[in-house]
Amino acid sequence: MSSRSSASRVRRVIAALPRSAAAWVLGLVAVGWSVPLILALNASVKSEAEFTATSVWEPPQNFTLANFIQSFIYMEFPLKVANSLVISFGALALSLVIAIPVAYAITIGRHRWRTFVLATCVVIFLMPQEAFAYPIFLVAKLVHMYGNVIFLIFPLGLSGAAFATFLLGMVMSRFPTSVVDAAEIDGASRWQTLTRVVLPMMTPSIVVVGLLLFIANWNEYLLTLLLLPDSSSMTVPLAVSMFNYGQMGGPPTTIVAAASILGAIPSLIVFLLFHRSLTRGITAGAID
């Protein structure tokens, strides 16, 4: 290897690096932003003895998964995941089932009440959930579904529907009328236009909205806190926060850290999938 080619290779690498200081600063800040998670991760793989002996920065000498196993079992993790999945998917399905036809009707369908509907949706999703919380609690008791995971699908699904209608309305309003007109000329009914023409073309946007709803439902804090008192029906985030208060003075930090990481993993998985769709969704919107 001649010195000339290695020198030019080095030069190429240097030329490819971000030039301004701002980029480096931001990069470092980004790393710093993740510090809480990195530290939790670090703590979760240390044994308790090692954790108290070392500083939070040092990587573990004896990597251990015992904390994960312990919190996994103690939290009945699979059960909590199942609860969270049921609620998140159920609510998201309900939201989409309501939102898609409504968004279609008010944009492409040019329904008379479109501005009213959209305005109402905006008002609803800006409202504080706390105002609805107690009545929802009472309804739950009334129908004897207090503590039941299924019940949560309804309030979450409905408030999600407001949000979804708004977002989907925004996207649908950019839908090319030429395609709709062509379908109508071909004799399609409104319903057929929706299902056979619009929906297939809108799938990426629907996926993005669905993902946003899923994440919001999964991370939901207020209603799950109020409506799920038994540990057997708790969702994952709820279970993790309860974990902290579980025992006398709280369980060892290493276990709490492991529990937190476990609880965050499903969200992270969704996020990794979400990342690409988010980009696609945003750039698709920007291209219009």
Partner: peptide, 19 residues
Amino acid sequence: AFYLPQVIPIAIAGTIWGW
């Protein structure tokens, strides 16, 4: 990295910060 805090369940983020 910057968006991650919005994705993590807030209960968990709170637990970590509390610690």
